[in-house]
């Protein structure tokens, strides 16, 4: 117990800083994942066969590769290849981490958004089109606002998964919370205490987010 307090006392600043990095990485990845998810979801629900194929290939490819392999590929593999074309090409761990997480989360997000869109009755699109509204306008004004309601619980769930997945990026040396745990353990050799502290920090953040998420979900459901 005393050693836990010791670790917190000596490393509080660094741990909180690392937690901040974790949250930054999560947030950046989620923003890009939403954009990627929306683009591929719209490709998948449309009638264009080529877009359908692109959407399916992307989702299958990314979901078929473990995140850690994707991270290695982007952090080590892509720069190695790019150096042949542009000698001064470099990528920071944050950039590579964001790309890997956004690609990964984007694929799942695409499936969530696609399922949300498909959960809206087909008659809604037909009614909107019959009034003369274009496909895009109908999607934006009629279908998506209804789809979002069913999507929200899954999106929040995906947010939490992504937050936890940032720990995998400790392998490419990004100084997020898990990586900080490794450093502290290396310095103190107190693995039980270190990982307990790190685990509890994740838990507090995630439980807080889940509670906020539940509240948002309730409010959305109440507003019809």
């Amino acid at each position: 117990m005393t050693s836990i307090i010791q670790i917190i006392q000596s490393y509080a600043g660094m741990l909180l800083g690392a937690l901040g990095k974790t949250l930054l990485l999560t947030l950046l990845s989620l923003v890009f994942a939403m954009i990627i998810g929306m683009i591929f979801a719209l490709m998948n629900v449309g009638k264009n066969r080529v877009f359908n194929l692109i959407g399916t290939v992307y989702v299958d490819a990314v979901r078929g590769v473990p995140l850690i392999v994707l991270a290695y590929f982007i952090y080590f593999g892509v720069p190695a290849g790019m150096k042949l074309l542009i000698p001064e090409f470099r990528m920071s761990a944050l950039q590579a981490g964001t790309i890997a997480l956004a690609m990964n989360c984007g694929a799942y997000m695409a499936e969530i958004i696609r399922a949300g869109i498909e959960s809206v009755d087909k008659g809604q699109m037909e009614a909107s089109r019959s009034l003369g509204l274009s496909y895009g306008k109908s999607m934006r004004l009629v279908v998506l606002p209804q789809a979002i309601r069913t999507m929200i619980p899954s999106i929040i769930n995906q947010f939490i998964i992504t937050l936890k997945d940032t720990s995998i990026l400790s392998v490419i040396g990004f100084p997020e919370l898990t990586n900080m745990g490794k450093t502290i353990m290396g310095n103190t050799f107190k693995s039980l205490e270190t990982w307990a502290v790190v685990g509890i920090m994740y838990m507090i953040v995630i439980i807080t987010l889940s509670k906020i998420a539940k509240r948002i979900e309730r409010r959305v459901n109440r507003a019809r």
Binding site: D121, G123, Q124, E126, A127, S128, R129, L131, G132, Q146
Partner: peptide, 17 residues
């Protein structure tokens, strides 16, 4: 889309938004 502006349609299941 222009033509449809000119043709109103009423559905069996209403399809109100």
């Amino acid at each position: 889309n222009k033509v449809r502006e000119n043709i109103g349609m009423v559905f069996q299941h209403f399809n109100l938004f």
